[in-house]
């Protein structure tokens, strides 16, 4: 057993050296510079002719007012709650359906045409129908969000199952595993990366759909607040809404990205 000593332990885990960058400015610094530059340009816009655009201090002031009187908090909470319920329901429904589609040919044959069909319809286009059928309460909004996350996630899960390396399944079989064990201990872990990517896509799609749904019919929420502000030409509030939507969307994406990195750290990345 001569090989043991020839493989120094340090060599194994160390990441490969990154290709040399020409400049040595860290990326975080560049990101910060970019953000500051963007805000600077925004600040200049009103002074060079775009008089309607509110300057950053005005927007910050409005954000403060809306925060203090509780409006912003209420809107954020209402929007997040809707997206959360719809998204979770969508994922919970999509994962088993996706697994069944990938594992059993007949189920795939039965379900796939509908999934493919509804995938071509933007969830927003369902809103008129949903409102007519479900009224203007929470149900139609949650339903379209559910649809958005379900469709993204079901396709990803299905792809994950279909793409499981056949040799891994054979390896499990020759080690004595039967279908049930192969499913639980090979197919599920092997498709996790796909499912997590599907969840991220689904969350992005849910968030976009939600805000649009609130523009159409809601009594509270970030979309509603902006729609309302539009009636009064209240540009600072619209800006507050836009920034809140962007920041929250980014935050949610980062949380899922973190979970994804963590849960799929076994993957060989290059």
């Amino acid at each position: 057993m001569t090989m043991v000593r020839q493989q120094p332990a340090t060599q194994a885990g160390t990441p490969q050296p990154e290709p040399r960058r020409r400049r040595t400015v860290p990326r975080g610094v560049l990101n910060l510079v970019s953000v500051l530059l963007g805000i600077g340009i925004w600040w200049l816009l009103p002074t060079v002719g775009f008089h309607d655009i509110p300057a950053p201090p005005e927007v910050a002031g409005r954000a403060w007012e809306l925060t203090v009187d509780g409006t912003l908090g209420g809107d954020v909470l209402a929007s997040l709650l809707r997206v959360f319920i719809g998204f979770v329901l969508g994922v919970v429904a999509a994962v088993p359906v996706g697994f069944l589609m990938g594992w059993y040919g007949p189920i795939r044959g039965l379900v796939e045409p509908w999934v493919q069909f509804f995938r071509t319809i933007p969830p927003l286009a369902i809103i008129p129908l949903a409102i007519v059928l479900m009224g203007i309460g929470e149900t139609p909004k949650i339903f379209v969000i559910f649809l958005a996350s379900f469709l993204a996630c079901v396709i990803a899960t299905f792809q994950g199952v279909v793409n499981v390396d056949k040799t891994l399944i054979n390896a499990a079989r020759v080690l004595g595993a039967k279908d049930r064990t192969i499913f639980a201990r090979v197919v599920v872990p092997a498709s996790t990366p796909f499912i997590l990517v599907g969840m991220r896509v689904g969350l992005g799609s849910s968030w976009a759909t939600l805000v649009a749904a609130e523009l159409i019919a809601a009594q509270q929420g970030l979309g509603y607040r902006m729609q309302n502000a539009q009636l009064y030409y209240d540009l600072p509030t619209i800006f507050v809404g836009l920034i809140a939507i962007g920041v929250l969307g980014l935050l949610m994406d980062r949380i899922l990205l973190f979970a994804e990195r963590h849960l799929t750290s076994w993957q060989e990345r290059r």
Partner: peptide, 13 residues
């Protein structure tokens, strides 16, 4: 009967 595959076929997780 144990089988060893060319592509290793280790469970990466």
């Amino acid at each position: 009967r144990g089988v060893i595959f060319q592509q290793y076929a280790l469970f990466p997780w």
